[in-house]
Structure formats: structure tokens, C-alpha cells
Design a binder for these strands. Structure first.
Length: 263
DNA sequence: ATGGTCGGTCCCCGA
């Protein structure tokens, strides 16, 4: 059997509901990790989404941030609703659940990393501190030797090949060495970037700004990623960026990225 | 072309 797992920063679930429903019908992901739902869990339109047979777990806050996991398969356990080590951190950016797949449990996280701009400054400091907490959690999870999929908006452009114009992003938090090094450090633990598993792919993007005709000019960046533990990476069949979604009416500025696994 | 666009609200801020 196959298991498809997608990540999508929807930029408000309320503003995006028809668009999200259209995509769910087309793409039929088994698990969808959403970010920037920008609403509290109680106001999340779970009923509409559950009509499609989904189990839903949401971690939200008013107006900002917020993450969710939708699953066609049972959610065995909600493992975490925040990253450990954030006693002063009240931002809704992390949810981790164990899904009952046909092959056994698969652990999935929906992650919305802080943007980090302007950099340097307190927002960048928060970004880097958050990346370190994620690194620590990722290391813990590797020890479980499970299929783990860390899906989300990482707010990092990993390589110059992931941006239309590297010079235009020089100095931005999304390309700063500290951000790139922190992302690479998680990979060095033993996680694979699903997209980069496929050799030779470059200049495929997951985000195009609303401003300045970025979509029409294909001025994009790749910042939404699936990081895979070895037990998940070994089972990866394909991963695709659903870029056509960006061209629809009322589009989010991000598009979904979906991996298909033999799981 | 030093602009441009969204979303959620606080008529500005975050992205």
C-alpha cells in the first residue's frame, strides 16, 4: 500500500477553505499537514474537512501561525502540540502525531518555522532558537527508529538552486548561513530532504510572493520541505510540488508538496 | 518603476 503525505502553508484556512477542498479532492493525500491556519482550534472548519473522511488535529492561535494534521487514517496518538523547551513560547507552530498506516505507525509533524526577518534582530534570534529546539526533537525521534516525516514551512531556502535570483535574497533570514546551517544540521543527523532525494531537480519552488507579479515571472523560492527519517526515506517513491495550485483563484502564496511512500 | 499584495484585525503588522 502507499501512503501520501503533503505539506501546505495555506495562509489562513478560513480564506482558503474552497481552495483547500478543491485540492484535497484532486490530490487525495492520506495525510495533509497545514500551516498558517491563523485561527484557534475551536474555529477550525474541521466539519467540512472531516466530510472527506479526515481525522483532524489542530494547534491554533488567533490571527497568527497555527498548524494542523488531517488524516484519512486513524490518529493513534497526538505526541506533541508544541516543541519541548519553549516555556516562554506561546506561538502555535508544531504538532506531531502518530498515524496508523497499513505498514504500522508513521509519525508525522506539521511545522511552521518562524520567518526570522528582519535579520539580525530578536525575530532572527527566535528563529534560530526555534531551529535548535527542532533539531533536538528530530534527534530524539531518530532514536525511535520509526518512519518519521517532518513536514512544513521551514522558512529556509536550502540552496541557491532553490531560488530564482540568489542575489535578491542575500542577507534575508531565509538564506542566511545560520538558517541554512541549522537546516543542514538536521539533515546531518540522518534525515533526507525528500525533494533533494531526486537527483538533478532544481529551480522548482513552493512559494511565490503576492507582490510584483512574482508568480507570472516565476520568481519563486523553495521553502516547504519534507524531512524523512531513514525508515521513511527508504520507502519514498516520489515527491511532487503542486505548483499549478498557485495559479488558481484565491491562491495561497505557498503550494503543496506531496510525497508518496510504500508505507 | 525604491513600488508592489494579501489576511486579519490593532487603520497597521506580519509575511
Amino acid at each position: 500500500m502507499t501512503l501520501s503525505v503533503a505539506s501546505w502553508n495555506v495562509n489562513s484556512i478560513k480564506a482558503r477553505l474552497p481552495t483547500v477542498l478543491d485540492w484535497l479532492k484532486d490530490a487525495r493525500p492520506d495525510v495533509a499537514c497545514l500551516q498558517e491556519i491563523t485561527t484557534v482550534a475551536a474555529a477550525f472548519p474541521a466539519m467540512e474537512l472531516e466530510d472527506l473522511g479526515s481525522n483532524v488535529k489542530t494547534v491554533g492561535q488567533k490571527s497568527y501561525n497555527g498548524v494542523a494534521i488531517l488524516s484519512r487514517l486513524p490518529i493513534e496518538e497526538v505526541a506533541l502540540t508544541a516543541l519541548p523547551g519553549g516555556e516562554d513560547d506561546d506561538q502555535a507552530r508544531y504538532v506531531e502525531a502518530v498515524i496508523s498506516a497499513d505498514s504500522g505507525p508513521v509519525r508525522v509533524a506539521s511545522i511552521y518555522l518562524p520567518n526570522g526577518n528582519p535579520a539580525p534582530g530578536p525575530k532572527f534570534d527566535y528563529n534560530i532558537a526555534w531551529r535548535k529546539r527542532l533539531h533536538a526533537r528530530a534527534a530524539q525521534l531518530l532514536a525511535l527508529e520509526e518512519a518519521v516525516i517532518l513536514a512544513g514551512d521551514y522558512n529556509v531556502i536550502p540552496r541557491d538552486a532553490d531560488v530564482h535570483d540568489p542575489a535578491a535574497w542575500e542577507g534575508d533570514a531565509l538564506t542566511r548561513p545560520e538558517s541554512r546551517d541549522a537546516f543542514a544540521a538536521i539533515k546531518w543527523l540522518g534525515y533526507a530532504d525528500a525533494f533533494e532525494q531526486v537527483d538533478g531537480r532544481a529551480h522548482q519552488y513552493t512559494f511565490w510572493d503576492y507582490q510584483a507579479g512574482a508568480w507570472n515571472k516565476n520568481n519563486g523560492i523553495r521553502i516547504d520541505h519534507l524531512l524523512l527519517s531513514p525508515q521513511a526515506g527508504d520507502r519514498l517513491k516520489s515527491v511532487e510540488i503542486h505548483s499549478a495550485v498557485r495559479g488558481r483563484e484565491k491562491a495561497s502564496d505557498h503550494v503543496p508538496v506531496m510525497g508518496v511512500f510504500d508505507l
